[in-house]
Design a protein around this nucleic acid. Structure first.
Lengths: 140, 140
DNA sequence: ATGTTAATTTGTAATCGTTACAATTTTATA
DNA sequence: TATAAAATTGTAACGATTACAAATTAACAT
């Protein structure tokens, strides 16, 4: 569902965000990465091509993206905020061995939750922890 | 399912935790509270009856409880680690208005997730955000 | 073009939650 | 009662995030 974003500048504009160079590169990096990077990972990756980049800018930009709903924050562990350009509802699995965070597809509408029937739901988060299949194989 | 804990001291012992006074009071407080307190909330509540209590002790004790599997950590928002004496899998709903964290019952086994079929799942977390029914009524 | 204002970026300092660590107190044991 | 082990405590350190003001860049009117 993210494949449809061909022009990042236009995409940001259509979400009322002025497409500065930093903002475009940060969003492009999020689009291209599948590892749900932290602020630090984004900063370390981009400082190479944007030598003047400030970590504050990365924070500001990600907060802006979240406010405008084009990026979602993933809080899997305390002290480890991660970001995802895929804002559709999906699950995350964190491997306790290799520390990777993987996506998984699921449909939460089948849960039919009685207790919050009359609540207005704005966000749905699902995350699992355990050992991924790769690490299970290696561990034998 | 938590009603069965009648003797906190015995319960801690049966989980290989020496039941010191601080540990018992912290666990009792968790059992009696339904608001999934933070370390700060626990500390502020107990300092009244345990004047020598240290915040470090609250941290140490909660980490001990989590390691022994009798308390689970809930990470709903960054910078807001909460604790729950109910370790059964259940959902959490955080109201964006009144900031309360409510439990809801659900059965995740119906999700039938293909992508992680061969993974070993150790923890399952489900949390929603939005507006609770009380705040919805008030907001009209 | 040029000057002026607004928006963005940047760096530093401050804040807050959490942990490290050593000292003190309490508990268990010989 | 003496000694060792465990638990608690207080302070300092740490890391992620934010506040804030200065510097840079972009936009816009003259």
């Amino acid at each position: 569902m993210l494949g449809k974003i061909t022009n990042v500048g236009e995409f940001l504009k259509s979400n009322d965000i002025k497409p500065s160079y930093q903002r475009m590169r940060i969003f492009e990096y999020l689009l291209g990465s599948k590892d749900h990077p932290t602020v630090d990972m984004i900063y370390k990756e981009l400082i190479g091509e944007i030598p003047t980049l400030s970590k504050t800018t990365v924070y500001n930009t990600l907060n802006l993206f979240v406010e405008h709903g084009i990026v979602s924050r993933i809080t899997i562990e305390e002290n480890e905020t991660r970001y995802d350009a895929d804002t559709a509802v999906h699950g995350h699995f964190k491997c306790e061995k290799c520390e990777k965070v993987l996506d998984f597809v699921t449909d939460l509408s089948v849960l039919n939750i009685q207790d919050i029937k009359e609540f207005q739901i704005n966000q749905q988060h699902l995350y699992f922890r355990g050992i991924c299949s790769d690490c299970l194989k290696k561990g034998e």
